[in-house]
Amino acid sequence: MKTLSLMLLLALLAAPAFAALKGQAAPDFTLESSVTTQPEHTKLDQCKAEVVLIKLWGVR
């Protein structure tokens, strides 16, 4: 039982500490110039009643 508790504690400590946004009002943002196509909208408030995909990614 002690081992199980310890494992649970370790798992909780190892879990990524990030604030979940799902279900919440999306925080506003403004972006500058795109390095490819300059989109018509670069601010969240310009995307009302539309769908927005924000994808964090890396080349490497």
């Binding site: 989109p39 539309e50 927005v52 995909l53 994808k55 080349v59």
Partner: peptide
């Protein structure tokens, strides 16, 4: 659809 691909590296 509005797409914002953020190169974060």
């Amino acid at each position: 659809l509005n797409m914002f691909l953020l190169e974060s590296q």
